[in-house]
């Protein structure tokens, strides 16, 4: 059964005690993890709805990753630390803690084969680690601004890292050599009046089929300090690196694409949050404006796609985590 964005509806709701920051499904579809402004890491059992929360970091946790086999959760804090957790343990106990960076860790990604973990953040260095034991593999400096997002290519041969300035570096995983760079500078601006750098590649995704690279963020930032900017996703051709399409919204004047993912059928999804509220935007390959959009009840801050390709989890400022299904509503039992 393929996903149909026109059937989008909020199917489940989970509540926490503080505004939420990020979320990830476990690859086996058993759990949903989130983090909050109260420093909590939260696990919801999707079958029972049971909630487990703990506060292991000395700061907010802005990034989560889970091993492809569903065994390990990795939490990345603004306290420089990476921590490993058994996904299903009744009372989670860290199996490993590593001081990984000097400053916020903003992005983590696991290689498709589950062997490597990539991390990056405010110290502007991409680092690779062995997922199994947390030992360092290599460091890849080269970003001029803070690293905002990471994405392994599905082949596992390349890693993409993207920063505040809209620079996307492609690294050869086996050697750590920089292969080339994509230019997503449309997602960055410097506001001289306010004296601030703003924007950045907030999320990346690589699509099925043609393997297009999507870079999500914001543009038209007329007032960065006042949150006046519009959501956008740039679609790049992987081979030529040309921008094939600039996917924008129909009417959102206050928003940023916090996360972008491809559905298995190739539809591109952007999760926009901001003054215009939370909105899921759905684009086909050739759509400048969304073919469909779904308004969420509160501004959204992150999103993840369930491994079944039919459910989108979003976290919200109003302390709620929602699951939006892209299929027909189930008849009430």
């Amino acid at each position: 059964m393929p996903a149909d964005p026109k059937l989008a509806h909020v199917a489940r709701e989970f509540v926490h005690g503080a505004p939420l920051i990020t979320c990830r499904f476990d690859p086996k579809g058993r759990y949903l993890f989130a983090t909050g402004e109260d420093r909590a890491v939260i696990r919801w059992d999707l079958a029972s709805g049971a909630k487990t929360e703990w506060k292991p970091h000395d700061s907010w946790v802005r990034a989560l990753a889970i091993s492809p086999d569903g065994q390990f959760l990795i939490t990345a804090g603004c306290d420089d630390m990476l921590m490993w957790w058994p996904v299903a343990a009744e009372k989670p106990q860290a199996t490993r803690s590593v001081k990984a960076h000097n400053g916020w860790i903003r992005a983590v990604a696991v290689s498709p084969d589950g062997q490597l973990l990539a991390t990056g953040g405010n110290d502007r260095i991409v680092k690779l680690w062995k997922l199994a034991d947390g030992s360092p593999v290599r460091e890849m400096p080269g970003h001029e601004k803070d690293i905002y997002s990471l994405q392994f290519h599905p082949s596992g041969k390349d890693l993409l890292s993207a920063d505040l300035k809209g620079t996307v570096h492609q690294w050869e995983v086996a050697t750590g050599k920089k292969v080339r760079s994509f230019d997503a500078k449309d997602l960055y601006s410097y506001n001289g009046g306010q004296g601030v750098d703003f924007g950045g590649v907030r999320s990346m995704a690589i699509g099925p089929g043609k393997g297009h690279l999507a870079c999500g963020g914001l543009y038209q930032a007329s007032n960065p300090l006042g949150a006046v900017h519009e959501p956008i996703v740039l679609r790049f051709d992987w081979e030529t690196q040309k921008v094939l399409k600039k996917h924008v919204s129909a009417d959102i004047k206050n928003g940023v694409v916090w996360r972008t993912v491809f559905l298995p059928e190739g539809v591109l999804v952007g999760c926009s949050g901001g003054g215009a509220g939370g909105v899921l935007l759905f684009w086909g390959e050739n759509d400048e404006k969304p073919a469909h959009q779904f308004k969420l009840p509160d501004t959204a801050r992150e999103m993840d796609l369930h491994p079944d390709g039919l459910q989108l989890a979003t976290v919200h400022y109003n302390k709620k985590l929602l699951i939006t299904r892209l299929t027909a509503k189930e008849a009430k039992k």
Binding site: W104, G195, V196, F198, P224, L225, A227
Partner: peptide
């Protein structure tokens, strides 16, 4: 020194400024 009027992304801008 400017600018600290951070209604948006206060933490990123204070980190920068």
């Amino acid at each position: 020194h400017s600018n600290y009027d951070t209604h948006n992304e206060n933490f990123e801008f204070h980190f920068e400024q």
